[in-house]
Amino acid sequence: MRSLSRDILPLAVAGGLIAVAVIAPVRAADKAAGLKPATAQTINIGYVNGVAFYTAQEDGYHVVATLSVAGGAPIRVAATLQPEQAVSFSVPGAADTAPSVVQIARRGDSLTVTNPPPRLVLN
């Protein structure tokens, strides 16, 4: 009789690690390729959060972003992007600091969402 912890568990862990090693590069390639149609992408601009998605239409990529501040009333912004066009949203920073900017850009048939790096806020 095989011992679960000595014989079977190490095989299960090894199988899980192999699956992660195969799936992780595929998922990373999906993210690098850009946003897929009708798939939401999270947006974080300082204290403003939301989601964005797009659909491919005959007249361009219809981008919709829904943003809100700490659960407040959301606002929806829509734009139609042609190849090599972009739209951006920004939140002002403190005095003498740059604003936080999210850019949604269409490069050929690919759409990317660039979130700003998180800021450390000390009060």
Rank of each mutant, 00 (worst) to 15 (best):
R2P: 14
R2Q: 14
S3A: 10
R6V: 12
D7H: 11
I8R: 00
I8M: 07
L9H: 02
L9N: 10
P10F: 05
L11I: 04
L11D: 02
V13I: 15
G15L: 06
G15C: 05
G16T: 07
A21P: 06
I23C: 04
A24S: 08
P25R: 01
V26L: 15
V26P: 04
A28K: 09
D30M: 12
D30S: 08
D30I: 14
D30F: 12
K31A: 15
L35D: 04
K36F: 04
K36M: 10
K36D: 01
K36S: 07
A38P: 01
A40P: 01
A40Q: 09
Q41S: 15
T42R: 12
T42E: 14
I43F: 00
I43K: 01
N44T: 15
G46M: 02
Y47V: 11
V48T: 14
G50K: 02
F53I: 00
Y54E: 09
T55H: 06
A56N: 15
Q57G: 09
D59C: 00
G60V: 04
Y61M: 09
V64G: 00
A65R: 07
T66R: 08
S68C: 10
V69C: 00
V69M: 08
A70Q: 11
A70H: 14
A70D: 13
G71N: 07
A73G: 03
P74T: 06
P74A: 09
R76D: 03
A78V: 12
A78Q: 14
A79E: 11
L81Y: 06
Q82T: 11
Q82N: 08
Q85V: 01
Q85W: 03
F89I: 05
F89K: 01
S90V: 00
S90M: 05
P92D: 08
P92H: 01
P92N: 05
P92L: 06
G93H: 07
D96T: 00
T97A: 13
A98K: 13
A98M: 13
A98C: 03
P99L: 11
S100Q: 15
S100C: 06
Q103A: 15
Q103T: 15
Q103R: 15
I104Q: 06
I104C: 03
R106V: 08
R106D: 03
R106L: 10
G108I: 04
G108N: 07
D109M: 08
D109P: 00
L111I: 15
L111Y: 05
T112L: 05
T112G: 02
N115H: 03
N115F: 00
P116Q: 04
P118F: 09
P118E: 08
R119D: 04
R119Q: 11
L122S: 13
N123T: 10
